[in-house]
């Protein structure tokens, strides 16, 4: 009985989350004439799969895809390395000004991006990074508050005896981190990687401001090209949205079991 309720709830909820996307897919498949019919047609009369290919070729989306992949992979790598170091520093050491510094870490999450945008633009312009992918990659190598916070919260839940035992055996802190902590952090590192990939993949404001030339554009910038000042190519937007959602969804689908399953099986609890 309880199982039935659980499944009913799960199915109902997932319908809520999936239904609007169903519309996105069918919109992408419809013909121009069918787009705006009311009452809406649930299914297109002809399934125009060619719409996907057409939308993809309106602009150099292969190129956008390449740029997005470069940005996403390099910056994700940066986040993993830098945030692990920093989070460990905050979680496991006591040092002068630690709490104050950590508050500053958190405070940086609260800075609205619109404020620092223009000064940042000036800075990157001075460095000659405008219209390159660097502004989208390099800052990731210096940690992001959200992930530092997330990883720090996780490391704090690991028993300290682990570190201490290893330290007594003569291991340095870096060895402790690499040999003891990082293996246990697997799930949360995957979580960070997945989250960062998602936000990187879908970032719009950053690429918008820092990139000028279409050959440097990322997928979301390409997508936004369908939305002009005076009109929207809804069909292309939906088609491209469906296509560019597939890689992050696939990543998520394969990663999620490690994220939620992993922690329970590390054997550190109980």
């Amino acid at each position: 009985m309880k199982k039935v309720t659980t499944y009913t709830l799960l199915i109902l909820c997932s319908l809520l989350f999936i239904a609007p996307l169903f519309w996105a897919v069918t919109t992408a498949l419809k013909s121009q004439q069918e787009l705006y019919l009311f009452p809406p047609k649930w299914f297109p009369s002809v399934w125009r799969f060619s719409n996907f290919a057409e939308a993809w070729s309106i602009q150099p989306f292969n190129l956008f895809m390449k740029n997005t992949l470069i940005v996403t992979l390099l910056s994700t790598l940066g986040q993993l390395v830098s945030c692990t170091l920093v989070a460990y520093g905050f979680a496991r050491f006591q040092f002068k000004g630690r709490d104050g510094l950590f508050l500053i870490v958190l405070a940086t999450m609260m800075i609205p991006w619109e404020v620092t945008m223009i000064p940042q633009y000036m800075e990157f312009n001075y460095l000659g990074w405008i219209n390159t992918l660097k502004p989208l990659i390099v800052p990731s190598w210096f940690g992001s508050a959200y992930f530092i916070f997330l990883l720090r919260q996780f490391i704090m839940t690991l028993p300290k005896e682990l570190d201490e035992a290893a330290t007594i055996d003569g291991a340095g802190r870096m060895t402790v981190l690499l040999r003891i902590i990082v293996p246990l952090m697997g799930p949360s590192l995957i979580l960070v990687a997945v989250f960062h990939m998602m936000s990187c993949w879908n970032d719009y404001l950053g690429p918008l401001i820092f990139l000028n030339d279409q050959t440097k554009y990322t997928l979301t910038l390409g997508l936004s090209q369908f939305k002009g000042m005076h009109g929207v190519d809804m069909q292309s937007i939906m088609a491209i949205t469906c296509l560019i959602s597939i890689p992050p969804l696939a990543v998520f689908f394969f990663a999620q079991r490690y994220i939620v399953g992993g922690i329970a099986t590390t054997g550190i609890k109980g």
Partner: peptide, 27 residues
């Protein structure tokens, strides 16, 4: 000598000074 922890959090400190604090003060 207490320097170790700062080395761990150095990436963040550096990034904060370069990419955040400057623009923030400017604003």
């Amino acid at each position: 000598g207490g320097a170790v922890p700062y080395l761990f959090i150095f990436p963040w400190i550096f990034g904060f000074l370069v990419f955040t604090l400057g623009p923030l003060l400017f604003s």
